[in-house]
């Protein structure tokens, strides 16, 4: 008990800043992922012949061990936060891309035909029909990616990216299990909390008429 209090008193401030860094790294990576993968996913639905191949290619990227990716980016981007964010972003792409592609592709083709027949342009179709209708599926992809990324973001410490991983690595190096726990628990809580918040957001964003259906 005493040790925990000791640790909090000596690492309390650090814990806060590290958690802040951790959130920053994860959310920046996710944001990048959304910006890239959602439009890419929609684009893929327009080239269905290529889509499956491209998605499997991205799937292969996903299987590269995360440590290897981080190591791989080091010579190119150096150390620090930026390469960490970019490496994590690579991981966020697949779930978001795949869910966007599936979600948009599953939109009832009759509704699309009606929309097209009414004189909707391609952009209008995406904005007024495809995105709103695919949103629950896309959001699920984003939520999935976010939760994973928060876990993986601990590895950012390995290339000097900061975050809660720093505490874990310090604990390993100094052989202080308390420090490892101190880094792990907030990361888990953060992941659970984000999952919960995003679930609420997902429900909010789903058009009311579609809530019953899904």
């Amino acid at each position: 008990m005493d040790t925990i209090v000791d640790i909090f008193s000596s690492y309390g401030w650090e814990l806060l800043t590290k958690t802040g860094e951790h959130m920053y790294i994860s959310f920046a990576a996710i944001l990048l992922g959304v910006i890239v993968a959602v439009p890419a996913g929609i684009l893929l639905t327009r080239i269905p012949n290529m889509a499956d191949r491209l998605i499997s290619f991205v799937g292969i990227l996903q299987t590269i061990p995360s440590l290897a990716i981080l190591a791989f980016f080091m010579p190119i981007l150096g150390v620090g936060m930026t390469p960490a964010i970019i490496a994590l972003f690579v991981y966020s792409v697949l779930p978001i891309l795949r869910n966007t592609y599936t979600g948009v592709k599953e939109v009832d083709s009759n509704i699309l035909e009606a929309g097209k027949g009414m004189g909707m342009s391609n952009m209008e179709t995406i904005r007024k029909i495809e995105l709103p209708m695919a949103l629950p599926v896309i959001m699920a992809g984003i939520r999935f990616a976010t939760v994973y990324l928060i876990g993986w973001a601990t590895l950012a410490a390995f290339i000097g990216g900061g975050g809660l991983g720093d505490l874990i690595f310090d604990g390993l190096n100094l052989y202080q299990p308390e420090l490892i726990v101190l880094g792990t628990i907030p990361a888990t809580i953060l992941a659970l909390l984000t999952n919960w918040l995003l679930t609420i957001l997902e429900k909010r964003l789903t058009p009311s008429a579609l809530r019953d259906a899904t």
Binding site: I111, G119, A209
Partner: peptide
Amino acid sequence: PVQLRRSIGYVIQQIGLIPHMTVGENIVLV
């Protein structure tokens, strides 16, 4: 084609109303 279609009415068998828009929004979609 887009402008053309706005000037011609179109009704399909499967109806194809947009589910997340109200009936009113659907009617005045064009």
